[in-house]
Design a binder for these strands. Structure first.
Lengths: 201, 201
DNA sequence: ATTTGTTTAAAACAAATGTTTAAAACAAAT
DNA sequence: ATTTGTTTTAAACATTTGTTTTAAACAAAT
C-alpha cells in the first residue's frame, strides 16, 4: 500500500484486492476498512454504499484493459499480425492480473447488468471492424469461410478460460504461480497456431 | 417440484436450483426452506449445516456428468472420433444444464479445495490415457507434435467458456435461451474442425 | 481568534444471517 | 393404550451485516 495515499485511494486499493480475491458478498465493509486502516463509516462517506464502491471498482478493473485491447482489434493491422498481437497483449494483461477473469465471470454471472450496461461494454466483447476484416479476407479467398462471431469466441475462450480454472491446472500439475505463468506464456504461440490453421482454406 | 418428494429431496431440489442461480452466499437458508415449503430447521436436521448441504449438492452436480465424460476420454475410440464424441456429449450436457459451468467456476474460484479434494476430481480434469493416445499418434507422424496438456485445455476452453459468458453473448446478439443453444450447437462442428486442423502435421 | 467546510471517529441502528432449542405431532411397535 | 423413535414446528439465539448518527478533530479562510 502506497504511503501518501489519500483515504479514498486506500479504500479503493484495499477493496479492489478483496473483491478480486473473494468477490462482493464474501467481502465485508469492516474487512475493507480494517485493511485500509480507516474507520468503517468512511467507506459510506466516500462511496455512499458498498454497492457503489463495487461498481466504481468494476469500472476501474475492466475499463482500462478492455479499451486498450479494443484498439488492437480496431486497428489496420494485417489479419495474422492483428491476431498475434491481440493474443499476446491479452495474455500479458491477464498474467499481470490473473484474478481478473474470475472476477468478471463472477459479476457477469450474478448481476450481468453491472457489466452489460457498462460504458465499456462493447470494448469487452465487440468485433465489428474485426468481423468485417474476416469477411473481407474470406471473400478474397485468403481464408476459409468463417463466422466472425464464432471465431472471436474461439479466440477469447482459448485466451481467457485457462485463467478461470487456474487452481485446477495448478493443482493437477503441481504448479506454483510462476510455473502457471510459464505454461500460459507457451499458449501465446499455441493459440496463434491453432487459430491460424483453423482459417487455412 | 415432484409431488411425493421426501423432505430431504425437496430441500436438495430447491437448494440446487438456488445455488445454481445465485451461488452459495447469495442464497439464504430461509429462501431454500421457503421454496421447498419446509421449516427452516429441517435443513439443519437433515444436512447439519448450509455448508454440508452445499457440498452434497456439489457432488451431485459434478459427479455424474464428469465421470460420464471421462468414460469417453478413456475409451479405445480412434482419435478423431473420440474428439468428436467428447465435444458432442460435453456440449449436450452443458446445454441441458447451462448454469453448471458458472457454478463450478464460482466454487473453484472461492474455495478450490471443495473441488480439487473431490472424489471426482480427476474425472473433471485428467487426461492420462488421452495424453498417451496423442503422444502415440504424434510419434507415428499422424499428427503434429502436440502437448497433450495444452491440447486438452484448448478443447475444454472452446467447449466450456461460451457458457461462462452466456449473458454477454445473449446481450450482444439479442439471443434468447433457444437461440443461444442453436449458436452453441453450431460450435460442435466448429470446435471439431478447429482442433483437428490444429493437429494436422 | 473565530468561523467555515471538510474529514475522521466511536457508537448505535435495524435487519438479516446460520444455527440451536424445546416442545409438539406423528407413526410404528410393544 | 403406551412407549418408542422419528419428523416437524415455532421461537429464540448469538453474530454479523451494511448503514446512520452524532460529535469530535482538523485545516483553511476571514
Amino acid at each position: 500500500m502506497s504511503e501518501k495515499a489519500s483515504t479514498q485511494e486506500k479504500i479503493i486499493e484495499s477493496a479492489t484486492e478483496l473483491f478480486l480475491e473473494k468477490g462482493f458478498h464474501r467481502t465485508s465493509v469492516r474487512e475493507i476498512a480494517s485493511r485500509a486502516k480507516i474507520n468503517i463509516s468512511l467507506m459510506n462517506y466516500y462511496f455512499r454504499s458498498k454497492e457503489m464502491l463495487f461498481e466504481t471498482i468494476i469500472n476501474l478493473l475492466i475499463g482500462d484493459p478492455s479499451s486498450s485491447l479494443k484498439t488492437i482489434l480496431d486497428s489496420d493491422l494485417e489479419l495474422n499480425e492483428k491476431i498475434k498481437q491481440y493474443i499476446c497483449r491479452y495474455i500479458d494483461m491477464l498474467i499481470s492480473n490473473p484474478l481478473l477473469v474470475s472476477f468478471v465471470l463472477a459479476v457477469l454471472n450474478h448481476s450481468p447488468d453491472k457489466i452489460t450496461k457498462l460504458k465499456v461494454t462493447d470494448s469487452l466483447y465487440t468485433t465489428e471492424k474485426f468481423a468485417n476484416q474476416l469477411n473481407a479476407e474470406s471473400s478474397k479467398g485468403n481464408i476459409r469461410k468463417t463466422d466472425p462471431e464464432q471465431f472471436y469466441l474461439n479466440m477469447l475462450s482459448l485466451i481467457a478460460f485457462p485463467f478461470a480454472i487456474k487452481s485446477l491446472i495448478n493443482e493437477k500439475n503441481a504448479y506454483n504461480g510462476i510455473e502457471f505463468s510459464k505454461f500460459i506464456e507457451l499458449r501465446k504461440e499455441i493459440i496463434y497456431n491453432t487459430l491460424i490453421s483453423s482459417l487455412k482454406p
